[in-house]
Amino acid sequence: MLPDRLNMHAARLAKSAFIEHSVVLRRFLMSRVGNVHDIDDLVQEVFTRLLRVRDTEMVRDPLAYLFGIAANVAREFLQRRYQDNVLFDSEAADRAPADVENPMDGGLAERLELGDQLNRALIKLPPTHRLVILLVKRDGLSYGEAARATGLSVHTIEKYLVEARALLRLILTGKERRP
């Protein structure tokens, strides 16, 4: 296990790659949590493009490749939807260009909505899972600090985070997966 500081550095690097591309991607995915087909189309296209990237290339920074490709595909999908819309919906046409060019503005509502969903899902987690999420994610404690605060080991903190995220995912997409 690397020292916490190095860990955080690595996490920051990974995060910056994500944030760069995530706004448009997250917007796409979140607005379609209820729409399996759209997400499947996007994922299929991302997958096909991933296969074209040589392993040796991608291994250097897999997250940058993944999120970069996914954001591009999402952008293309949004653009195409906008063009489809123009044909019959002038109101959508008025709104859409701003959305596409400046995803930050358009994404705000969805971000709030996801935040809402996550906050509601958080209550459904078992207490220790909830505690670890709050300490590490909300309060920004390192794993080591969270371990000291709870009396658990760093390894266990990690286990709870893995489990908590998995549970949140199941709670959030529950409707979609079990029709």
Binding site: S22, R111, L118, L122, K137, R165
Partner: peptide
């Protein structure tokens, strides 16, 4: 996406 959104939970 979930992981990143948790930062603002």
């Amino acid at each position: 996406m979930i992981d990143q959104s948790l930062e603002t939970i």
